[in-house]
Each structure stands twice: as structure tokens, then as C-alpha cells.
Amino acid sequence: MPEVKVANLSKQFGDNAVLRDISFTIADGEFFTLLGPSGCGKSTTLACIAGLERPTAGSIAVGPATFVDAGTFVPPEGRNLGMVFQSYALWPHMTVAQNLAMPLRIRKVDRRTQDELITEALGKVGLAELKDRYPHQLSGGQQQRVALARALVYSPSVLLLDEPLSNLDAQLREQARAWLKRLQEELGITTVYVTHDQEEALALSDRIAVMSRGDMVQIGTPKEIYETPATAEVAAFVGRCNFLTGTMTGPAEVRLDCTGQTVTVPEGAAPGGRVTVAVRPERLEILPPGRSAPADVNVLTAEVLTSSYIGSRYEYDLRLGDHVIQAETARPGLSGEVTLVVEPDSCLLYPTTDALPEDVAALVRT
């Protein structure tokens, strides 16, 4: 399967710039996810790759074939890309087999070969025995598999998936993403996946591109995106984070606004001046009464406000000075004043500017 190259891609609708200078390369056989909130430009990027939108500027190539460049625009039917939409877009008056036959008829594949390709594609998604059913006779998960089989039946060079699991309930979605990942690895097909679900992106992807307001903010492996988010906005969107503002008082020290206490942070993570310290809830350890904190860690005193049992752990809301933060632990029944411990290396540091996105700025101000 070929690699995908997108360079300096821009798209405007009138005066509204929905994509600004987007560039990335997807390796042969890679599962690459475009992640971001609604309106960030991820679906528009996918539509440009598919040929459903014509970019204002930039180039798109798949393997040796150039689809978009100055003076060049290959229409969707000339790109040999498979696409699955959020709605599945199955024809209700056609059986499963007839739905899969449609793209083969358009490509003028003979009837005998059609039957072989349909059987093979349905076998890949585990639905060979349902080929004579109609879409309304299938569950949501089965419809999703039919849509995927229809995208695979003509052996596309690249698979494009636009939030294909969003219509499934939570348990079925978890099962479907595990199955989808196995299938993609078995086929070795280059895949571009669009989602706003960060957990889904972390579970499925070889690499993730986080988008915001038409810009590409960070590209990296799931671990890189989660462990070392490039900006406070990425940290807020991918997983949960506590944000605490403060002032640098040394090369590796920050005095927190909420308590006036000085905490140690990774040296050189940010220069002097105003900063925002971000800490994941699971990186805050709550010590039981009577237990001493180890050396070389940050020790904070907080008050338990609420606790929630969510099966594998407890989530606590805690008051830290004039700020409310969240922590996760396996310890039940905590109340009153508690001691928090956080490793310096677990503190993420970002410059504090007035240019913080409003949704992140609200978290910092909480």
C-alpha cells in the first residue's frame, strides 16, 4: 500500500479559512488519525484527500500518483480510495451483496468476479452469511462492517474513515475498534481515520495528528501525544489535566498562584516568567494518613470535596488553595485534609499567555 503526502494544504470557504498550511506524510500501511474537536478541520482534510473538497492551495499525492497540485485535480472516482462515512450510507432497498456490488458495477467488473470479490470482502469482516439481508435487518455494528466491506471490495490503495464508530453505543464501539485495528493490521492497508474521541485515537493509531481551528498542532505516537503534549490545548483535549498558573523562581522551580507554594518542575522545560503547570489526575498520588512522602517529590496539602466510584478507581475533586483539581486513586473513602504527592517529571510546563484558547483558559482559571 502506498504512502500519503499532504503538503501546505489550505482551504477557504469565502473569508473563512478552515485549513491553514497543513502538511504531513503517512507511511505505507500506517494507521494515521486526525484528532480534534468539532470544527477543527479534520473532516475537511479527509474530504480533500478523498476529492470531495477542492483545496484552495497545496498538494496531495498517494504513492506515485499526484491527486492535487497546481493545475491538477483528480476527481474522486479517479483516486481508488475507499471511504466509510459516519452515517454508513447504505442503500436501504439493496441487500448487503447488492450494496457491495454497486462500486464494482461502476468499475465495470464482470459478474463472476463481482461474486468472488463480494464473498471475499464479507469474509474479511465476518458477515459472509448475511449477504442476502437488507440494512434494516442488521444491527448498527453489522451495518458498520458492511460499509467497511463495501469500501474494501475493490481493493482501494488507501482507506479513509470519517468517525465510523460514533453511531455505536459505548460497549459496541469498544469491541468494534479492537476488531477494526486487527483487520487493518491483517490487511496492511494505509488508513486515515477521523475522530473527536481521544480514547479511540489513542487505542487505534500508529500516529495521531491533533488539529485545532484549522491548524496542525502536534503529530506523534499516542504515547508522545499523551505524555508530552506540545501545548496546553493538546494536554487539555487528549486526556484530563489540572492546570495551575505560577511564576518561575528558578530554572526548575515555580511558585504556584493558588497556594504560594514552590514546586519543582523539569529543568529547562520553560524559561522564566509566567507559566502554567499541567498535571494529569493519575499522576497525583494521595497518601494515606500517617504515611510520609518520599524525598525529591512535590508535596501539597488539599481538601477532599467530592469522590466518585467509577469501577476501576475513585475520582476525587480536591481544593488546592483557591483552585479545584482532580486526582485518581484506588483508595476509597478519603475525606477531609489529604496529602498529595507529584513527581517533578510528571509536571508539564507551558508559557502562560493571553493567547490561550478560551476553553483551556477557563480550565486554568477554575
Rank of each mutant, 00 (worst) to 15 (best):
R319S: 14
R255Y: 01
A327K: 05
G141V: 08
A17F: 08
L161I: 00
K181Q: 02
Q137K: 02
A7K: 15
V68C: 10
P344K: 06
V125A: 09
A330E: 14
R283V: 00
Q142M: 12
L161K: 01
S59L: 00
P37K: 03
K124C: 11
A7G: 11
V324I: 14
T329P: 00
D206Y: 11
R150D: 05
A7S: 11
P266E: 08
R107N: 03
C258W: 00
G58A: 09
D215R: 13
L172T: 15
H196Q: 12
P37F: 02
T339G: 07
Q114W: 09
E120C: 04
T259C: 07
L148G: 12
T353E: 01
I208S: 12
G272S: 15
I208Y: 08
G14C: 11
V146D: 07
D115K: 15
L180Q: 04
T45Q: 02
D162G: 08
T249Y: 00
G214D: 10
Y193E: 04
S155A: 14
H136G: 09
L35K: 12
Q326G: 03
G268I: 03
L284N: 10
I22S: 10
E233C: 02
H323T: 10
T228Y: 13
L340Q: 09
Y88H: 11
I118K: 02
L122Y: 13
S212H: 15
D215Q: 14
P351W: 06
S23V: 10
L104Q: 10
T245P: 15
T249W: 00
L148V: 02
A151I: 11
G51M: 09
R107V: 10
M83K: 01
K42E: 06
Q143H: 13
Q98V: 08
L161E: 09
D354A: 13
M1W: 01
E199H: 15
P332H: 08
V304M: 08
F73H: 01
V364W: 05
A209I: 06
T259E: 02
G141D: 12
A89I: 11
P357M: 02
A121C: 00
L34D: 00
L349T: 04
A147N: 10
G336Y: 09
E163K: 14
T66F: 05
S59W: 05
R255V: 13
E53P: 01
F85H: 06
E129R: 15
L256D: 06
L180W: 03
L202Q: 06
F73S: 03
G78W: 04
D354N: 11
D162P: 13
G141P: 13
C241S: 15
G41Q: 11
L305W: 05
Q12Y: 15
Y316V: 06
P251R: 00
A47T: 06
